[in-house]
């Protein structure tokens, strides 16, 4: 269970965050929500699809990490096996929650920084401090706060992006059937991608609008990212054949 508390410079003056952070429980997922601003960096490692939010039904961009529930093939020996880690993972165990009280280091959007008090990353002896002796936020906390702010604005951008794409019928469902090296099969459902044929047929004015809003660029990043699917399958195959310990080249 997550024990979420609002971060306070008074109460949590001596809290430290483990430096050599394992990805832990947060990473036991087969897909993670991402924002368009990180597409360019995600493009180096992950296939980026769309999934539907179970809460709102809206499309959200997500990086695919594995094929089964809780299967993260980028987690090798509890270490993230890729140069770039999605912001949603990096930010853990911190998050922003709607402000309820004052006196906490909050960003200007009326949100408070909160964290999971029970997270193994939160310590008092070792690791990096969140606050300096005078109660000012440390470099680490500053970077966490800015990361969280990026995610909030990025999520607004993501919904504007997917909302427009859905309106233009530029998102289509995709069914992925994969047979792994051991003969086992998986059928992935609930994944969507860019409807490339519809994009090609899009009238010039709508295309220009997508370009002007940077959406077109993001769409191409996403389409290009699908080239990582064979690599993801290869990760799984290595796991199945017992070669999992070898880090991905």
């Amino acid at each position: 269970m997550v024990n979420l508390v609002v971060l306070s410079s008074q109460t949590h003056r001596n809290v430290r965050v483990a430096t050599a952070r394992s990805s832990g429980d947060y990473a036991a997922v087969n897909a993670v929500g991402v924002i368009p601003r990180e597409f360019q960096r995600l493009l180096a490692h992950y296939p980026i699809f769309f999934t539907k939010s179970t809460d709102t039904g809206r499309f959200e961009p997500a990086a695919l990490l594995g094929f089964e529930r809780h299967e993260n093939l980028f987690l090798v020996n509890d270490r993230w096996d890729a140069v770039y880690v999605p912001l949603q993972i990096q930010r853990q165990p911190f998050s922003l929650i709607p402000r309820r009280s004052d006196g906490a280091p909050a960003n200007p959007d009326g949100l408070d920084v909160a964290f999971d008090l029970d997270s193994p990353h939160i310590q008092t002896q070792e690791g990096e401090r969140l606050f300096l002796d005078d109660g000012q936020p440390s470099k680490l906390l500053q970077s966490i706060t800015s990361m969280l702010a990026t995610l909030v604005s990025g999520s607004t951008e993501a919904y504007a992006f997917t909302g427009r794409l859905a309106e233009l019928d530029l998102i289509e469902p995709v069914r992925i059937d994969i047979e792994f090296v051991d003969g086992s099969e998986t059928k992935m459902q609930g994944l969507y991608w860019i409807a490339a044929a519809a994009l090609k047929a899009l009238p010039a004015a709508q295309l220009a609008d997508l370009r002007d809003r940077e959406f077109l660029e993001w769409m191409y990043f996403q389409m290009a990212s699908l080239a990582h699917m064979p690599a993801l399958v290869a990760r799984k195959n290595r796991l199945l054949t017992g070669a999992a310990a070898a880090p991905f080249p």
Partner: peptide
């Protein structure tokens, strides 16, 4: 209520 707020997707 959710449909009122978010709409349903065509696909």
């Amino acid at each position: 209520s959710k449909v009122r707020r978010y709409g349903l997707q065509k696909i």
